[in-house]
Simulated scan of single mutants.
Amino acid sequence: MSQNAGGTEKKRYSLKPEKEEIIIERIKQWEMGKHYRDPRYNIDRFKEDVGVNKKYLSRVINRGFGTNFSGYINSLRLGYVQELIDDLGPGAIYNLTAIALLAGFSSYFKFSHYVKTAHGVNPTDYFRQKRAN
């Protein structure tokens, strides 16, 4: 155990690389179920679904995916939004608010905030750029 700035002991959670790979594999299996589309989905449900301690799960997400739980879930949701828009085909007219809600964002505001934070542009411009590529 190590001590933090306040002098209290802090547990260290270390994972062997083999265990981390098993957890990442479980997470990838979980992704196929698209449970992230539930706007109320949280890390407590995630740990139950994946069957891993919350501390280990947070560590694996941080190290393996380079983000925290919220960023990880929102990136999955954004990927799903992209899939839905791609499925509509070129030239289709779509409602980003409806698509964002289908993907699991609890509101257009939260969706827009995530896109702006992650990509520096509003959702309309982001998907216009994505479709142009």
Results as ranks from 00 to 15, higher is better:
Lys28Gly: 11
Ser107Cys: 12
Ile27Gly: 08
Ser70Ile: 12
Lys130Gln: 06
Ile23Thr: 02
Ala100Ile: 03
Asn4Leu: 14
Val115Leu: 06
Arg128Asp: 00
Phe69Met: 03
Thr8Phe: 14
Tyr108Asp: 06
Leu101Thr: 09
Met1Pro: 07
Arg40Pro: 08
Thr97Val: 13
Glu48Leu: 02
Lys11Asn: 07
Ile43Thr: 01
Ser58Gly: 12
Asp86Val: 12
Lys116Trp: 03
Asn74Phe: 03
Val52Leu: 01
Ala98Gly: 15
Glu18Asn: 09
Arg26His: 07
Tyr13Thr: 15
Phe127Gly: 02
Lys16Ile: 13
Gly7Asn: 06
Val52Met: 03
Lys54Cys: 03
His113Pro: 05
Phe109Gly: 15
Gln82Arg: 12
Glu18Phe: 15
Arg12Ser: 09
Tyr94Lys: 10
Phe69Ile: 02
Ile99Leu: 06
Arg12Trp: 07
Lys47Pro: 00
Pro39Asp: 05
Val52Gln: 01
Phe127Asp: 01
Arg40Leu: 15
Phe105Ile: 05
Pro90Arg: 14
Ile93Thr: 12
Pro90Val: 13
Asn133Glu: 13
Leu88Trp: 08
Ala5Val: 10
Phe105Tyr: 07
Leu57Met: 05
Leu88Pro: 08
Thr124Cys: 11
Ile22Phe: 08
Tyr80Asn: 13
Ser106Asn: 14
Glu9Phe: 15
Val81Ile: 14
Ser107Val: 09
Gly66Leu: 05
Ile43Cys: 00
Gly104Leu: 03
Lys116Asn: 04
Ala132Gln: 02
Tyr13Ser: 15
Gly79Glu: 13
Ile24Asn: 00
Thr124Trp: 07
Ser107Met: 10
Arg131Glu: 02
His35Met: 11
Phe109Arg: 15
Phe65His: 03
Lys34Leu: 13
Lys116Tyr: 11
Arg40Asn: 15
Ile22Gln: 05
Lys11Ile: 07
Asn95Met: 09
Lys16Gln: 13
Phe69Pro: 00
Ser2Pro: 09
Arg128Phe: 03
Asp44Thr: 06
Arg37Glu: 14
Lys110Asn: 12
Ser106Leu: 12
Asp44Trp: 04
Arg26Trp: 03
Tyr114Ala: 04
Asn62Val: 03
Lys130Asp: 04
Glu9Ser: 11
Met32Asp: 14
Arg59Ile: 03
His35Trp: 10
Gly6Phe: 14
Tyr94Gly: 08
Gln82Asn: 12
Asn62Ser: 08
Pro90Met: 14
Thr117Gln: 11
Pro39Gly: 07
Asp49Met: 00
Leu84Ala: 14
Gly51Glu: 06
Ala5Gly: 11
Pro123Gln: 04
Ser106Asp: 13
Lys10Ser: 10
Glu48Trp: 02
Leu15Tyr: 03
Ile22Cys: 09
Gly104Asp: 05
Ala100Gln: 02
Pro90Asp: 13
Gly33Trp: 04
Asn62Arg: 04
Lys34Gly: 09
Gln82Met: 11
Asp86Asn: 14
Tyr80Thr: 09
Ala98Gln: 14
Ser106Cys: 13
Glu20His: 04
Gln3Pro: 11
Arg37Trp: 14
Tyr41Glu: 00
Arg45His: 09
Gly120Thr: 10
Gly33Gln: 12
Glu83Met: 12
